[in-house]
């Protein structure tokens, strides 16, 4: 554990709390892609299967359980509690274009042909693109509530902080995980456009609006 990874994880936690807070206070999940949230549940469940057979640390255990539970809770909020505020007609990204290629990549690139290893790889690849339905929705509507942009910024910060974490680990442990690093770089790259608008507009007090 190093400071980059720690703050990355804290940022990830924060993003989830921001999202739940947004849904509760506005009593609405407007602007949130249900598809992205479903993909996150798939990511956490397939990656954290090792909860059942390996122990890393209490920190690791608590975080994994939290990520699975909170992502399922968000689905509940969107599909049950605040269902009328969820508009599937603007959440149109085709997730099969993400899940299929990720499954193929996981079969090719993994650290061993065991079900758990392939699913772990799959979760890494899927996480790297899981935000796309959300970003696509943002692109379509052209604007977002400020709180939704804070959610995305915290999520993007988490991925960004994992990069110095890997650099740190390379120098301190001489260790590189090529699958995680490659997927992580792609994932962080997807946020670049968003970050640009977030820093130049939202943090200057303006509304998040994309140029027409």
């Amino acid at each position: 554990m190093n400071i980059f990874r720690f703050f990355g994880d804290i940022s990830h936690l924060a993003s989830i709390f921001i999202l739940i807070h947004k849904i509760h206070t506005s009593r609405s999940c407007r602007g949130i892609s249900f598809k992205t949230q479903v993909l996150y549940v798939a990511v956490f469940v397939t990656r954290y299967l090792d909860l059942l057979y390996s122990w890393v640390s209490l920190y690791n255990f608590v975080m994994k359980v939290f990520f699975i539970a909170s992502s399922c809770y968000i689905l509940y909020l969107m599909k049950v509690r605040f269902r009328p505020t969820n508009d599937p007609s603007i959440d149109t990204f085709r997730v099969e274009y993400l899940v299929g290629p990720c499954a193929v990549l996981a079969l090719i690139f993994n650290y061993g042909y065991a079900v758990t290893e392939v699913l772990w790889s799959f979760s890494i690849f899927l996480e790297s693109v899981a935000i796309l339905p959300q970003l696509f929705m943002l692109q379509r509507t052209g604007e977002a509530e400020t709180i939704t942009t804070h959610y995305l910024a915290a999520l993007g910060a988490y991925r960004t902080l994992y990069i110095p974490n890997w650099i740190y680990r390379y120098f301190s442990e001489g260790y590189v995980d090529p699958i995680a690093v490659t997927a992580g770089l792609v994932q962080t790259g997807l946020y670049l456009d968003f970050f640009y608008v977030y820093f130049t507009k939202v943090l200057q007090g303006q509304k998040f609006e994309l140029p027409a």
């Binding site: 990874r5 994880d9 990830h12 090792d50 390996s54 890393v56 640390s57 690791n60 975080m63 994994k64 990520f67 650290y111 061993g112 772990w120 790889s121 890494i124 994992y162 974490n165 680990r169 260790y175 995980d177 699958i179 995680a180």
Partner: peptide
């Protein structure tokens, strides 16, 4: 050494 990824990461 087992060929594993950063499984201690989240």
């Amino acid at each position: 050494d087992t060929p594993e990824g950063n499984k201690d990461e989240l």
